[in-house]
Amino acid sequence: MNMFIILMVAVAAVSGSKDQIVNLANGDPKIMLGLFNMFQYEYGKEYAPSERRLRLANFRQFVKDAARYNEEDEDVTYGITMFADLTEAEAENMRGFNATGMNDDDDVYEQAEVNPKFNLGANHQSRYGPAKNQANTNACWAFAATAVLEGHTSIKNRRYTALSEQEVADCTSGSTVARGGMHNKALEAVRRTGHLATSASYPFTYRDGYSCNTRHQNALPFRITGVYKVNGDNGLAAALSAGPVAVGMGFDRQLSAYRGGVYSNRSCMSVQNHAVTAVGYTSSYWIVRNSYGTGWGERGHVRFTRSYQNMCHISSYSFYIRTQSNGEVE
């Protein structure tokens, strides 16, 4: 029988979950190789003959690490993700929160009282649309900011509209797709221009070098009246009652293999290197949207425990906005 078919049968036999097959592959080289071939097929990976050995070695170590994480953490499932064949340096290039100088900006931002007009809680984050995919760029900061603006647009219009990360990137001074940036500066840039096009009219090109372009039709049904910094976990919960929040967080190797569950490993608290968007919460966990597409985590989301304060730095450098509908009188 073809190894691909054997693997598919094995996957179905292990609790119906392909994530659990990492434990089998850990002890069987043939299953490991077959799993690598499946990974290539699923993610559309193609390698030159000289590169394949390196990618297989990276993949083998990633699978072994995922199997170990499954043994150590019964509350979370770990498995194969788009990071499986990457070196750590390559993976780090997809975590583009550039925190250089962020403390210099702290005194600029007020920690305003939030007026909770909407109580979306844990079950309504789907109103904000699907998790997008930044691909192999450092543009997480632009995607995090855009997701906040998409959420507020959905609240105002009662329908989802995909907005332009490329315009955000082009109009944010000092931040780039290649080198990274800061989500608060992206929100400030949109506040200044008062403009953001749809992603259909101004698509993401994965490149830098464009000038700020606001010639496309403005898709924002509001203007931003202020960008504010979250004040701790309680402030994050309050801000989420009014809309999504752009979050700077620590994203480590273990999170790269996350497939589902409530994450509570505090090792991610050692560094802030990634920008994401908090979209909801319960009494037990935060719901955070990533920008690695719907194939990572829980359809692009991760749940962080609320048992620890500031889990993964989730409330250290996080920002929300206040808006005023276009045409409203102040």
Rank of each mutant, 00 (worst) to 15 (best):
M8Y: 14
A10G: 15
A12S: 15
V14T: 15
N26I: 15
D28G: 03
M32S: 12
M32H: 12
L33S: 11
N37T: 11
M38R: 15
Y41W: 13
E46I: 14
Y47E: 07
A48Q: 10
A48R: 11
P49D: 13
R52D: 08
L54I: 13
I80V: 12
T81R: 04
M82I: 09
F83R: 04
A84S: 07
T100P: 01
D107C: 10
A112S: 07
K117I: 02
F118G: 00
F118M: 04
S126T: 05
P130Q: 08
P130I: 06
N133T: 07
Q134H: 04
N138M: 12
A139F: 05
T146K: 13
H152N: 12
H152K: 12
N157M: 07
G174E: 12
G174T: 12
A178T: 14
G181H: 13
K185H: 13
L187S: 13
E188A: 14
T193K: 13
L196Q: 11
A197M: 07
A200F: 06
T205P: 00
A242C: 01
G243F: 01
A246H: 01
G248Y: 00
M249Q: 01
F251C: 00
D252G: 00
Y263L: 06
R266Y: 12
Q272K: 12
Q272G: 10
S283K: 14
V288I: 15
W296V: 09
R303I: 00
I314F: 02
S316R: 05
S316H: 05
Y320P: 05
E328V: 08
